[in-house]
Design a binder for these strands. Structure first.
Length: 424
RNA sequence: GGAGGUGUCGCCUAGUCCGGUCUAUGGCGCCCGCCUGCUAAGCGGGUUUGGGGCUACAACCCCAUCGAGGGUUCAAAUCCCUCCACCUCCGCCA
């Protein structure tokens, strides 16, 4: 939710941000009108309520005939108060809905436009030239089969399309990546967390996943519970309804959880392998800090993501995601995309968003500052999404005989193995 | 899953049976001031959160807020219903 006061004071800034996202500014006018309506209804209710309280207070000491008179007046007043209250509740709800429909105000720096209007900020490393090396790279599905690491056939048999089993070195790789990621996070002051992957509607709603994104979310039948698509959801809701002490900021958490996604709009896309799946595990960084500090923290999250990819010796580029592709909550977003040899292109491996105070408002997370409380900023960033990272590692570090060289940083977590060898 | 109990403004707590004097008691902590070689103690005051009005987003006035949401009533912390969380016991279980 955007700042209602800022909307009232400077609606043109919000209109401009909507334009950068390629969205209509109608929601702005709807929200402003709803705000007017809301404040009028509040004034009406409060005036009647104050009068009712005044009269009510007189009743106990009143004489018999005074009492009868008072009772008659308060009785009709009570009905008025009730309807005024109902009107206020309705107006308040309309206002809230109108406000909730407005996405976070995109950063001035975020490129205008949609999905394809990103700006490449930098390119790190060079994609391997397999032609020069004299062999055709195998894709991760084949490598996964040769190494006994990924079993997509049985995944489909047991759970359906877009499911898989990680076996042997595949499972070992996930464990190793998790440990490497957690060690890096811990060294940088993150608290390691294993959060619940099932959450209530409030958590989903608060993080902005029940709007247009709702199609992609699994709901538990008859339970009022959702499977999270990222641990951003439980970690944002972790401090919901709390007033935090800013002297302890930034609060940094590194959460490991499964992620579940319906991938509703992606039929036919990435049908092979484990690039796009209904479930994967992920280590996610999540930070609570002040609005002022959030911009610098966003850069730090990006730096940590790059550090992790560097350790895995991957070639990647960093893009500044365009306003129209930010999603509901983000004010700015950077994606790290790794080179996938058999696809001949860069694919998103990690993503970091500054949600400023947008989620904090929805989830009522404030800090106690001089001069009162105010919403804090939340940020998130992928440290390691297992499946895609495994794809990138296998394809990038494969050798002509189908074996895979293990990046040095990962070796201590893989029992010292330097090479993953094909199984018989 | 079954039975019972509990939920009060940071923490603890009075109040709930018998609705109005609750603009919610007291203690601890914290903040400001006084006192004081210093510290401690003592004394006085303050200390939920959100919103509206008015405005310098000050002061002030008002409304809401006793786990959440409904209901009864002129009036609800107090009575009724639903939900949530926690505790105890039983059952089941990794």
């Amino acid at each position: 939710m955007i700042d209602p006061r800022a909307l009232r004071d400077d609606p043109d800034r919000v209109r401009a941000a909507q334009a950068r996202r390629g969205l209509s500014a109608d929601v702005v006018d709807t929200a402003l009108a709803a705000d007017e309506e809301r404040r009028t209804s509040i004034a009406d209710f409060e005036r009647l309520r104050a009068e009712q309280k005044q009269l009510s207070k007189q009743i106990p000491q009143a004489s018999a005939e005074q009492k009868a008179d008072l009772l008659a007046r308060t009785k009709t007043l009570a009905a008025d108060v009730k309807s005024a209250e109902a009107a206020q509740t309705a107006a308040e709800q309309d206002w809230r809905e109108a406000l909730m429909a407005i996405p976070n105000v995109a950063a001035e720096e975020a490129p205008a436009g949609g999905e394809d209007d990103y700006v490449v900020l930098e390119t790190v490393g060079t994609p391997r030239d397999f032609a020069a090396e004299g062999f055709e790279p195998r894709d991760h599905v084949e490598l996964g089969r040769i190494l006994g690491a990924i079993d997509v056939e049985r995944g489909a048999k047991v759970s359906g399309s877009r499911f898989y089993f990680l076996t042997g070195v595949g499972a070992d790789l996930e464990m190793a990546l998790t440990q490497l990621a957690m060690d890096q996070a811990r060294a940088n002051g993150f608290t390691t967390v294993i959060p619940p992957a099932l959450v209530r509607p409030r958590a989903m709603e608060g993080t902005g996943f029940l709007g247009q994104a709702a199609d992609d979310v699994y709901r538990i039948d008859g339970e009022d519970l959702y499977l999270v698509g990222t641990s951003e959801v439980p970690m944002a809701a972790y401090h919901s309804d709390e007033i935090l002490d800013p002297s302890r900021f930034p609060l940094r958490y590194a959460a490991f959880s499964p992620c579940y996604r319906k991938e509703a709009g992606s039929h036919g896309k990435d049908t092979k392998g484990i690039i796009r799946v209904h479930w994967f595990d992920k280590v996610e960084m999540f930070v609570y800090t002040t609005l002022e500090e959030s911009f610098a923290e966003h850069q730090r999250l990006l730096a940590w993501e790059k550090e992790f990819l560097d350790k895995l010796e991957l070639a990647y580029r960093v893009i500044d995601v365009a306003a129209g592709d930010l999603g509901l909550s983000a004010q700015r977003k950077f994606d790290c995309e790794a080179w996938i040899p058999t696809q001949g292109r860069y694919r998103e491996l990690t993503s970091t968003s500054n949600c400023t105070d947008f989620q904090a408002r929805r989830l009522d997370i404030r800090g106690r500052f001089e001069g009162g409380t105010s919403p804090v900023a939340t940020l998130n960033g992928t440290l390691c999404a297992m499946t895609r990272t495994i794809v990138a590692i296998l394809e990038t570090h494969q050798q002509a005989d189908g074996s895979v060289r293990v990046p040095e940083a990962l070796r201590p977590y893989l029992q010292g193995r330097e090479v993953l060898k094909p199984v018989e």
